[in-house]
């Protein structure tokens, strides 16, 4: 569904992405793991059209999308849930969700939007209970659910999730991961960035490991969870001795 070839991106003179290629098949959850600053979020932002100067080829269902304006990319079927939720705090839950369907309001799809709201309430019953509550007063987990719900309101083919577990308590993290997994079961395709490698690989089909803007490893989630490098660097096994210079020992 999504195909990226040779993506390069710079922040000023600093190279953020160096020749990144990856793909996401329909119905898959693919996660990008890596340390802070490895370029994970930059990839999502480049897909969403937020880094206009990114070079390379990004295509969605065989149509080139790089170079398009962000709203055109949303229209093409990609919604991003940004890091830290970024919901509209002063607005109600319902208003936040309706804003997610902003492009579709103009297309006069009101009936369909009502149906989608119902579907989101099935997925997140908690949101229905808090429909008129001011979003800023929701708990962290609820806010994350709202942010995902808002993104789904645009009826995306591909959902981009940036650090959905960030700042959440462990129990809430597993809640969110279950929800993401349920979304895939309903046919959604998801590309997710996560620092919590164990949680995200737990629900993903495949993953890519990034280091300083480059893909250094890819594989099925099972392969990555069992990989010694990944264990050392991202799953909390003797971190210090990881990659201390070249050479085998």
């Amino acid at each position: 569904m999504l195909r990226i070839r040779n993506l390069h991106a710079y922040y000023g003179r600093i190279r953020a992405l160096d020749n990144v290629s990856l793909h996401v098949r329909a119905g898959e959850i693919v996660c990008l793991i890596g340390a802070n600053g490895a370029g994970k979020t930059t990839i999502l932002n480049a897909i969403s059209g937020l880094i206009p100067r990114a070079q390379g080829e990004i295509s969605l269902e065989n149509g080139r999308i790089n170079g398009l304006a962000p709203e055109k990319i949303v229209g093409a079927g990609i919604s991003q849930v940004p890091e830290g939720r970024q919901i509209f705090g002063p607005l109600t839950v319902l208003e936040n969700l309706q804003l997610g369907a902003y492009l579709r309001f103009r297309n006069k799809e009101k009936g369909a939007i009502e149906q989608d709201l119902e579907r989101i309430f099935q997925l997140f019953p908690r949101l229905k209970e808090r429909l008129t509550q001011i979003a800023g007063t929701l708990s962290g987990g609820e806010q994350q659910m709202l942010a995902i719900g808002r993104a789904i309101m645009a009826r995306p083919k591909l959902l981009l999730l940036d650090e959905p577990s960030m700042g959440l308590a462990p129990l809430v993290v597993s809640d969110i991961m279950n929800t993401i997994s349920a979304l895939r079961d309903r046919g959604m395709t998801i590309l997710m960035v996560e620092q919590n490698a164990r949680a995200s690989l737990g629900i993903s089909d495949r993953g890519y490991v990034l280091e300083t803007g480059r893909v250094v490893l890819q594989g099925s989630s099972e392969e990555l969870l069992n990989d010694s490098d990944v264990k050392r660097a991202y799953l909390g096994k003797d971190y210090k001795t990881f990659w201390e210079g070249r050479g085998p020992v």
């Binding site: 195909r3 990856l22 793909h23 893909v215 890819q218």
Partner: peptide
């Protein structure tokens, strides 16, 4: 086409690893 994408991705990461880890 899918095979070529997979090959390209794997080739690029193999080169990144070999360049970094093999003197």
């Amino acid at each position: 086409e899918d095979l070529e994408q997979v090959q390209l991705e794997r080739l690029q990461s193999t080169l990144n690893r070999a360049y970094k880890n093999v003197e």
